[in-house]
């Protein structure tokens, strides 16, 4: 059924359901989510933007609607007679729950593991060279840090949702960033995890310049 009332758009959503994570990892669906996180669009607009058939887009939209990643915003009749629905993402930013990704079958866990390893190795370009022997420890620490961060920011408290929706994009983004930092810094567990992570980085710091 078409949703009966306008659904507020969340600033950030951490996706923790392994099935939804798997669904989001399909390239066309990932591209649709990215576009709909930025603006509301019709099937026709998405099809043009992604170079796909409207039918293909419609099937993907239906799947995304079922798992509540995408919602219908409004319906519009055009002068040509078509009746197009506008869709948008449920949140402005989606993060995949790293813990759940690790538990998901079908290559998702491998993808998450490779991604973490790749991030840790990439630090070398800035002068932090973590040796292979320490790679497992480093990726575990990073994983725990991300997991805790996701837990804390996935449900940011908003007192007045209507007022929040009325904010300009810049104000909303900047205020959200300030609040995220505040939430993270007041959590002892996160602070400890971050301290340990930074300690590890310092151990292998071969010349990060200020």
């Amino acid at each position: 059924m078409t949703p009966k009332k306008r659904v507020s758009m969340k600033e950030i959503e951490v996706v923790s359901d392994p099935k939804v994570i798997k669904l989001m990892m399909e390239p066309t669906r990932a591209a649709i989510i990215k576009l709909l996180s930025a603006t509301e669009m019709t099937v026709k607009q998405l099809a043009t933007e992604l170079g796909k058939n409207p039918g293909t887009i419609l099937h993907h939209i239906e799947k995304l609607k079922k798992v509540n990643l995408v919602v219908e915003v409004r319906t519009q009749q055009t002068p040509t007679g078509i009746v197009q629905r506008y869709y948008r993402a449920r949140a402005r930013e989606f993060r995949l729950g790293i813990k759940q990704m690790m538990e998901t079958e079908g290559g998702v866990a491998k993808f998450a593991e490779d991604r973490l390893n790749s991030i840790v190795r990439s630090l070398a370009v800035f002068g932090i060279e973590i040796p292979e022997s320490q790679l497992v420890e480093a990726t575990d620490m990073l994983r725990n840090l991300i997991e805790r961060e996701n837990d804390l920011i996935s449900d940011m408290p908003i007192l007045d949702q209507k007022a929040y929706d009325r904010l300009s994009k810049q104000d909303r983004t900047d205020a959200s960033r300030i609040l995220r930092r505040y939430l993270l810094n007041r959590d002892p567990m996160y602070v400890e995890l971050r301290r340990s992570w930074h300690e590890l980085l310092r151990r292998f710091d071969r010349g990060v310049k200020l």
Binding site: M1, T2, P3, K4, K5, R6, V73, R74, T75, Q76, Q77, T78, P79, V83, R85
Partner: peptide, 12 residues
């Protein structure tokens, strides 16, 4: 169907 099911229908 598309017209009748919509809650938020607008003309161009």
């Amino acid at each position: 169907y598309m017209i009748l099911i919509s809650d938020n229908l607008s003309g161009s």
